[in-house]
């Protein structure tokens, strides 16, 4: 039986060539879908094939939002379990909720700023201590990059640039297949012109922060 698994279900290197998958998760209103669209556009600018999955719906009402992006030969936009190359958590506990998408070597970019659910007082579970969460993640995964994205966003001029900070953070990892420059070009094609400078600054801030963690 073990034999069968190994032979029959070994990955085909030809198909998996150039594959890179990114899972993004957080809470409604954090700009997750825009961010993944920008990454997708960046990939297209570099001549790559890309598909992406968005979860719409009750996003504006404080619910969970996620998106999955797959660069490579894929037709399906859903990432297989334990198969993300990178996960970007816009909210720290949301990354924990998506751990079934990551493996030991997944690059984990985590905004440490927490958003506590509003009905927390009527829930059985309490909101966990984030430092402890990060410690547990560090024990179990090889590439954990916690950054205070919300703080960096404020420093760039607006809390709404959080997604740009995280985007910059993503580009700092050397496995990330799209260059920072392509990302900035894609950002400019997707967002309003009057925020270019602020957004670019936010991207740089996220980039520098992760570089300093490596």
């Amino acid at each position: 039986m073990i034999n069968m698994e190994e032979n029959m279900f070994s990955k085909n290197p030809e198909f998996c060539k150039d594959s890179y998958t990114i899972c993004m998760c957080g809470v409604g209103g954090q700009g997750i879908i825009k961010t993944s669209t920008i990454i997708g556009n960046g990939a297209i600018n570099e001549g790559k094939k890309v598909v992406m999955s968005e979860v719409h719906g009750m996003s504006q009402r404080g619910g969970v939002v996620s998106s999955e992006l797959k660069i490579g030969n894929y037709k399906s936009s859903l990432i297989e379990e334990f198969n993300s190359d990178m996960i970007i958590g816009f909210e720290p506990i949301e990354i924990v909720r998506n751990l079934n998408k990551v493996n030991k070597d997944t690059k984990m970019i985590i905004n440490t700023h927490s958003i506590v659910p509003s009905n927390i007082s009527s829930q059985k579970n309490s909101y966990p201590n984030i430092d402890e969460v990060i410690d547990i993640l560090r024990e179990n995964y090889n590439y954990v990059y916690p950054i205070n994205g919300s703080q960096l966003a404020k420093e760039s001029g607006n809390i709404l640039t959080l997604n740009m900070v995280l985007l910059g953070a993503a580009t700092a990892d050397e496995t990330f297949p799209i260059s920072k420059d392509s990302i900035i070009i894609a950002m400019k094609n997707n967002l309003k012109a009057n925020f270019y400078d602020m957004n670019t600054e936010a991207i740089e801030k996220g980039y520098e922060t992760v570089k300093s963690l490596q």
Binding site: G62, G63, E81, E94, V96, L99, P117, I120, Q123
Partner: peptide, 25 residues
């Protein structure tokens, strides 16, 4: 059914999370 991870520490952490259902704005 959401997959269980192999690591019990992580599973415990996931189970201890508060849920985040949509609410009135």
């Amino acid at each position: 059914q959401s997959t269980k991870l192999e690591n019990t520490q992580l599973n415990k952490l996931i189970e201890s999370l508060p849920n985040r259902h949509p609410t009135l704005c």
